[in-house]
Write a protein that binds this DNA or RNA. Structure first.
Length: 673
RNA sequence: GCCUCCUUAGCUCAGUUGGAUAGAGCAGCGGUCUUCUAAACCGCGGGUCGCAGGUUCGAAUCCUGCAGGAGGUACCA
């Protein structure tokens, strides 16, 4: 039975569930199985079962019922499992050698312990990284890249076919600006490149420069728009420059992906869909969903009206609050609260007033009568798909890309690993796909993530990836020089390892927390970036994990005997540290599934930290290749070779799982460091 | 104004989807390297789980309200 081989650890849980269910005719194993959990305190045992829900199913009420059920369950006899009632809970303890054997045999036998075939025959498309051409790769892009890659690895492990797509930002008005900038300053730009500055940096500076120029001079903006129009009309010069920007940017991205160990199956960017947009528009038209929206003037007037209403309401509230404050019968607490409220409103009113003024200035004098086309959403919002000038929008392009991906890859899911700020961009067109009745609409997922705080392009505190990786490598080099070393590495190896550690530190920092959370790199009270936090090498970090792996590798290098379950005596793994490590190992497959279900690499990240902690604790407390049996063990006839072979097996299994988990995170495991 | 998300130790964060005495790392203090890598290990201190109600045998977890913070809010991607 291959299934039995595959799920030995889970076999215990199934057996416990079956054993418990067998005590009550009303229950089936499936009623019990989901209730089994890991006890909060390890001393309580390996598996625990709260009896309240069971009691409820059996028609017994309250705590008394739960106590009765717990008593009854504890009396059940299960092979290799001890049961003990603890109030309304039952704790199960698996015989130490059974637990060790089940876990280690499974880890040992399976090519990849965390892998499964539940995704066989299914495809997941993951849109990730997706940087913009002619803009440097900064920390913001790193998140999408690292999270997306990790999700891909996780789905691959579960047997899915994964199609990673780099939806490059290689189309749009930005190219009009780039071309305009190039036409102006190409001599200077070429010179800088000749002097060794990276092309993408030069591009980025040109882009920033032309943009600030356009802020002041509307003519520049029009010039850029003309260039983009030329590009759309296949003007040879515009096309040549576009190709140049795209090619050079791609070359730069390739270098970065190489550095990060990341790749895509497809790099069909925005421009790829240029000739496919019309079909989307036709499809929408045919569906009858496409309706006319407001003219620019109507929109501007509506926004102005809304802003005025907000201003009026804020003023009213302010007046009311001030009136309230004049009353005599207020407690100090109420007064303080009101003061705070008034303070806020006083700040709010001028802000709103300024907004009203700004909006008023934006209202066009004439209504051109041109209307965009779009879809009215369920909540009343309007998603524009065709601009008043006939152009398409980002939404149209994403819709087109989604159809292409659905038709080309027949995916079960399409994931968009894009910042949370764009949520309101994805949800509307997901809804449109549903309205169109496409069966694959349910597989569309926006996998959002928080942003890095404490840096901004405007303030010039934006951080480029190269800079971060270089700093990280430097830090790793310094740490290596200081650390207590017991391995000799050549200068080349030292350098390679320093890079892997630096990259590992940066990636892990990005992956370790829930993806939705923002990452604040600002210093507590001041300006600038807190590098120490990002580049830390101690504690919950990538290097900590890499070190755990390397430490085990070091032990295994020195072992000359066999590594196999046949050489082991599983009853020798009963120490606290061994059992903790075994239990951690047993969790891995479930964690991988959880990570996929929630699209959360952080589940793996936190798991492997826990595993590494238990690994470090084990090797710190117990010798492996020169282990000696205790007096007690000697008396029982335990030979040193057996003890050593047993621990070597445990070490090998721990190393394997740490390695697999690191692979799922996209972090390189190191044999030596 | 409306919508979405966040709030747990001094700091950064977990918390097995409603279970038992809420856990890690950093920072602080004190111990461990003649023994397989001390980038490690062991110990100590540190909590009104933002506030107030509600549901439940049981709430950090679910519901409602409030406060604070982040983001979005019609033709930029």
């Amino acid at each position: 039975m291959p299934n039995e081989e595959r799920r030995r650890m889970e076999g215990f849980l199934d057996a416990i569930a079956a054993g418990v269910a067998a005590l009550f005719p009303e229950l089936e194993a499936a009623d019990v199985r989901p209730l089994l959990q890991t006890p909060s305190q390890p001393e309580r045992g390996d598996v625990s079962l709260p009896c309240f829900p069971l009691a409820a199913k059996l028609g017994k009420k309250g705590k008394q019922g739960a106590l009765e059920v717990a008593e009854a369950v504890a009396a059940a006899s299960l092979d290799g499992v001890e049961a003990e009632a603890a109030g309304p809970f039952v704790n199960f303890r698996i015989a130490p050698d059974r637990l060790a054997e089940a876990v280690l045999r499974e880890v040992w036998q399976r090519p990849r312990y965390g892998a499964s075939d539940e995704g066989r025959g299914k495809t997941v498309v993951i849109d990730f990284s997706s940087p913009n051409i002619a803009k440097p790769f900064h920390l913001g892009h790193l998140r999408s890249t690292v999270i997306g890659w990790s999700l891909g690895q996780i789905f691959r492990a579960l047997g899915y076919r994964v199609v990673g797509v780099n939806h490059l930002g290689d189309w749009g008005t930005q190219f009009g600006f780039m071309i305009a900038a190039w036409k102006r300053w190409q001599d200077e730009a070429k010179q800088r490149v000749a002097q060794g500055e990276s092309e993408i940096e030069v591009f980025a500076k040109l882009y920033a420069r032309i943009n600030s120029l356009a802020e002041e001079d509307p003519a520049v903006r029009e010039e850029a728009q003309r260039w983009f129009k030329k590009l759309e009309d296949a003007d040879p010069e515009a096309q040549e420059l576009w190709t140049y920007f795209v090619e050079r940017s791609k070359r730069e991205f390739a270098r970065i992906y190489e550095l990060l160990g990341v790749s895509h199956e497809s790099d069909a960017g925005e421009a790829f869909y240029n000739d496919k947009m019309q079909a989307t528009v036709e499809r929408l038209r045919a569906s009858g969903l496409l309706v006319e929206g407001e003219t620019k003037k109507e929109t501007a007037e509506r926004k102005l009206r809304e802003a005025r209403e907000r201003l009026a309401s804020a003023r009213e509230k302010l007046a009311a609050a001030e009136g309230e404050l004049a009353r005599e019968d207020l407690s100090a607490k109420q007064r303080k609260k009101l003061d705070k409220r008034i303070e806020k409103l006083r700040a709010e009113v001028p802000r709103l007033a300024a907004q009203v003024e700004k909006l008023a200035a934006w209202v066009p004098a004439e209504d051109d009568g041109e209307r965009p086309w779009g879809v009215r959403l369920d909540d009343g919002r309007f998603a524009i798909l065709l601009k008043a000038d006939g152009g398409t929008t980002y939404t149209t392009r994403d819709l087109t890309a989604a159809y292409y991906r659905a038709e080309t890859y027949s995916p079960e899911q399409i994931l968009y690993v894009v910042g949370s700020a764009q949520r309101d961009h994805f949800e509307p067109w997901f809804e449109i796909v549903r309205k169109l009745g496409e069966p694959w609409a349910e597989g569309l997922r926006h996998v959002g993530f928080g942003k890095y705080l404490g840096m901004s392009t405007r303030k010039g505190t934006a951080v480029f990836l190269d800079e971060v990786l270089e700093k990280a490598r430097q830090k790793a080099r310094e740490a290596a020089a200081q650390a207590t070393k017991k391995v000799e590495l050549s200068p080349e190896e030292t350098e390679r390892v320093a890079r892997a550690i630096g990259t590992g530190a940066v990636k892990f920092f990005d992956l370790k927390n829930e993806r939705i959370k923002d990452i604040d790199l600002g210093r507590p009270g001041g300006e600038g970036i807190d590098w120490e936090r990002l580049l830390d090498l101690k504690g919950d970090t990538g290097p900590y994990l890499q070190f755990a792996y390397a430490r085990l590798a070091g032990i295994l290098r020195r072992w000359e005997g066999p590594v196999s379950p046949e050489a082991a005596d599983f009853s020798l793994l009963s120490e606290l540290e061994s059992r903790a490590l075994l239990r951690a190992l047993a969790e891995f497959p479930a964690r991988v599934r959880q990570a996929a279900r929630d699209y959360e690499p952080s589940v793996i990240a936190r798991y492997v930290i826990d595993l590494a902690q238990k690994t470090h604790a084990f090797v710190h407390h117990h010798r492996v290749i020169d282990a000696e049996p205790t007096e007690e063990q000697k008396a029982a006839g335990v030979r040193p070779e057996t003890l050593r072979a047993t621990r070597v097996l445990l070490v090998r299994c721990a190393q394997k799982v740490i390695g697999e988990a690191l692979d799922l995170l996209g972090i390189e495991a190191l044999e030596q460091m």
